[in-house]
Design a protein around this nucleic acid. Structure first.
Lengths: 209, 209
DNA sequence: GAGTGTGAAATTGTTCACAGCG
DNA sequence: CGCTGTGAACAATTTCACACTC
């Protein structure tokens, strides 16, 4: 398959969210225009995005809601379960652990780790927090697909190195540092300080536009 | 000022994070190469990004760490305090409320709202959760700069409409829906389901590349 | 007629390469 | 001599326009 832009993949995920809403509302078909309006895109963009993967629509009608959702799930690889380990049992780790929405979508948290002896051994939403020292042993026993780094910035890079060495190929990073990893490893960043700062910039500059 | 790409603004925020690390390490100058290595960029990109706003470096030497950090803070508008209201006292609202890092960077949470009578009136990290019914009155009394939507997807659009009507021009949206807002309002999205899904896609496709 | 699928055009964003300065 | 600043070349992405199908 030809190279597909990251922006296209992210939009597919948004389209899927909207399609699931359509399913709940009982719609059976949806046009690229409708999909665009609530998927933060344009009709042409929707059609282009989908055309990279095949032609799923019917001319004059639109796209079949159920089938398109299924196709996008297949494209994104959501047909199977993903094993997730979470590093850091603080605010972020706790929030993720107690959210059932990820498990529902196939991302199941296998284990939660921390360095803090005060947290290790405590239960967090039904899972016991394990000592980070066990990380490599645990991963050797049961490989994980995705690791979440929910620690402060300082230990994040070293943890990323350990995770990569242990075979992890996808990291969701909440720490406010840019992780340096080999090209075979994918990192997705959630950086709230950065989001606040882009909002601050927008507030200050769009007065001038 | 000429139009600046969102991607440039986001990188400035990353450069700033690294510059603060440099300050702590006692460095006084930094080259575009060093900045690029830990800012997820390239040397040319760093220089280009900065050149949109002025010329801050010294040829043959690099950039003065302290001064450049200060300049970027000014560009992003981080010189002042921003009033933040948080909608939703669940996992996300709690996590934000208890994180001192945002207040440190000038983003102070003024109020937290919820609809759930079981949560309203309870204290959350020193702040009492207010009934969402008071939102408009409160904002009329004390305007806020940024609103955080930390609710489930269903009420998110309606809340966004209320916030916009009440004069909010910047929204940080954690709900898994694309908000429709007037062009004068800026929305930043943090969509964890989407991040997991892009990681899933990467895991399935980079085997083929 | 309504709405998709898709090359081609336009735009936007990134990289190059080198002049110019400290 | 090293490293910035920047126009010009290049690459990627988005938008357009229209042929085609239901």
């Amino acid at each position: 398959m030809a190279h597909v832009a990251l922006s296209t993949v992210r939009r597919l995920s948004l389209y899927l969210q909207f399609l699931e809403e359509c399913t709940r509302d009982g719609l059976t078909t949806v046009s690229s225009r409708a999909l665009a309006e609530r998927g933060g895109s344009t009709p042409a963009q929707v059609r282009k995005d989908l055309s990279f993967f095949g032609s799923f629509g019917k001319r004059g009608i639109g796209y079949p809601v159920r089938e398109l959702a299924e196709r996008i799930r297949a494209i994104l690889g959501l047909g199977r379960r993903y094993r997730v380990v979470v590093i850091g049992a603080g605010r972020i780790g706790s929030a993720l652990a107690s959210y059932p929405g990820f498990a529902d979508r196939g991302f199941a948290i296998d284990a939660i780790y921390d360095v803090d002896p005060a947290k290790v051994g405590r239960a967090l939403d039904g899972r016991v927090v394990r000592d980070i020292a066990h990380l490599e042993d645990d991963l050797r026993r049961t490989a994980a697909d995705v690791a979440v780094i929910g620690t402060p910035a300082e230990p994040a890079q070293e943890l990323a190195d350990r995770l990569v060495a242990a075979g992890i190929r996808a990291i969701l990073n909440f720490a406010s540092v840019t992780l340096v990893v080999p090209p075979a490893v994918t990192v997705a960043n959630v950086n709230m300080a950065l989001e606040f700062e882009t909002l601050a910039f927008a507030l200050n500059w769009d007065g001038d536009r």
